[in-house]
Write a protein that binds this DNA or RNA. Structure first.
Lengths: 294, 294
DNA sequence: GGCCATTGATACGGATTCCGTATTGATCGA
DNA sequence: TCGATCAATACGGAATCCGTATCAATGGCC
């Protein structure tokens, strides 16, 4: 009562050979089943596909048209099987990455490149998120993996550190400390600080404040802004100083200079993902991140 | 061992309902066969399509992808069945028409229009052919039907008259006979005639020559050219006179005038086709031509 | 012109597949 | 803890399908 893929394969082979016996041999069946299946196919379609004499077989006009369609459909099934298998292996599909702006300056580009080289058919979607939003978008499943500073996370989120870098001081170019190649944190006491709000990126905020406290002073916070670039911009305008991850020094800006500081605490970044996330692309990405961490 | 359309339909229904019992009801089968067919499909694919607990079913990522593909494939089969049936009914496909230039001025346009209105999905391919080539292209199958003057045809070609029109005289505008509204053929005796070569369109050639002979003179053929339009052009240049089918008078050309002539013999046109031609579009076209003839 | 080889259709028996009923096992909610 | 729900499994009967054997028709060859 229903058309079968087997009938399509039989039909295509017969249409290619135009000979029941040879087609049956190619299909590794005997000739009578082939005759029956073709007859059944014509019956179901209500269309004569072959003009048969007892001596030769040829396609009708409708048969030629159905042949094209059948080949397309068989190829479509073949492709569907293959792409579905590739999907399960994580070799194709979509991987949505939520990254914080600071990751964009350090680990994100090389990590994406390394992953993309190994999984060229995966559509990597990059979404910038605020650090405080990361937990939510991971738990709701609207992104598959986040790249950010470590941060307190609810049960169900996993974390893997992949990168650590020191802080550096960013100073106005004409600042008195800009002449030194390395700055002691204590020297920054009393300077107006530009930081990001604790609510936006709590981990990094704590790190900067903690550094100052370890060196005996409470930073005087003059401005808060939630983008690292903006911090550097404001420093370049002479509005204050800041401590930022070393990778920010890639930002070449007249008016701002970056200087090493005497602190041992590092800014760590890592990948975060939901333990229950079943995106098949994720394991490969995590393997990539793990390799990147070493 | 092979994926079945039934499995695709079962899979799509289950993916839509995410409930074995309800999907089975929609498919008018009981639940166990559905479970088995889905399991068999997953087995053949080597891919887990559903994440099952004993309480709920949901698609995996690969399952979602396969769902899209399966829907596409089922629709493709459905479309293939329909279009193949339409092809056999002659409602879609290709109809190649070989027409002679003289038909283009008379019967071809309204006939094509009438046919096209009734069979809008048929791709009508129009090929101009020389009258003497028509038999060959019909017998070889490179066109399905010809529109031309009747002409001696080999066994296997059928002919149906659909149109007849009188001859008319075409004269230079400043010709002495141009002042009359009707011309007697005998008046053209001695005039330089422009005709087409006998080899190109034997039937029409014979008709024109025959007309003259019936009226007691042998036409003095000054020029021969195988396009009717060229004949009219040459007449307009004052190089001679001719007898052409009345439909050529649609050709408005300063310098040439068309005049009725006192002959009863008509120029007939009809459709010609190979008896063995199995293009399903042909019967409908011939029915159209038959209706056109009345 | 008659004989034989070729080719597709048909007949029939055996094996496989597949469906439906009944049942099990597992999980969630009360 | 018990019952309800839901998917998986067991099993028997029916339908399908394949292969061997055979038939019918056609074309080539002597």
């Amino acid at each position: 009562m229903a058309i079968d893929f087997r009938q399509l394969r039989y039909f295509v082979t017969l249409a290619d050979t135009l000979h029941f016996g040879r087609a049956a041999a190619l299909l590794h069946i005997s000739q009578p089943p082939l005759s029956r299946q073709i007859a059944a196919l014509e019956e179901e379609l209500g269309v004569t596909l072959f003009k048969r004499s007892s001596r030769q077989v040829e396609l009708t006009v409708a048969g030629r048209h159905f042949h094209e369609q059948a080949v397309r459909i068989i190829e479509a099934l073949d492709g569907a099987v293959r792409s579905t298998q590739a999907t399960e292996r994580g070799e194709r599909g979509v991987l949505r990455i939520g990254f914080t702006m600071s990751a964009a300056w350090s680990v994100l580009p090389p990590l994406i490149k390394a992953y993309g080289d190994g999984a060229p058919d995966v559509d990597v979607q990059l979404n910038e998120v605020l650090p405080r939003e990361l937990n939510d978008v991971l738990m709701s499943g609207s992104v598959d993996v986040g790249i950010a500073f470590p941060w307190q996370r609810p049960a169900g989120l996993e974390y893997l550190a992949i990168h650590a870098e020191p802080l550096c001081a960013v100073l106005p170019a004409n600042h008195r400390l800009a002449r030194k190649t390395e700055v002691a944190v204590a020297d920054l006491a009393g300077e107006p600080f530009i930081t990001f709000p604790a609510a936006t990126a709590p981990a990094l905020h704590e790190l900067v404040i903690g550094c100052c406290r370890e060196n005996g002073f409470e930073p005087r916070i003059r401005l808060e802004t939630h983008l690292q670039q903006t911090i550097v911009n404001l420093v370049a305008e002479g509005l204050g100083v800041s401590l930022v991850p070393w990778s920010m020094s890639k930002m070449q800006l007249p008016g701002a200079v970056f200087r090493a500081v005497s602190v041992t605490r590092m800014v760590e970044q890592g990948v975060i993902w939901a333990a229950g996330n079943d995106n098949p692309c994720l394991p490969r990405f995590l393997a990539c991140a793990r390799a990147f961490g070493r």
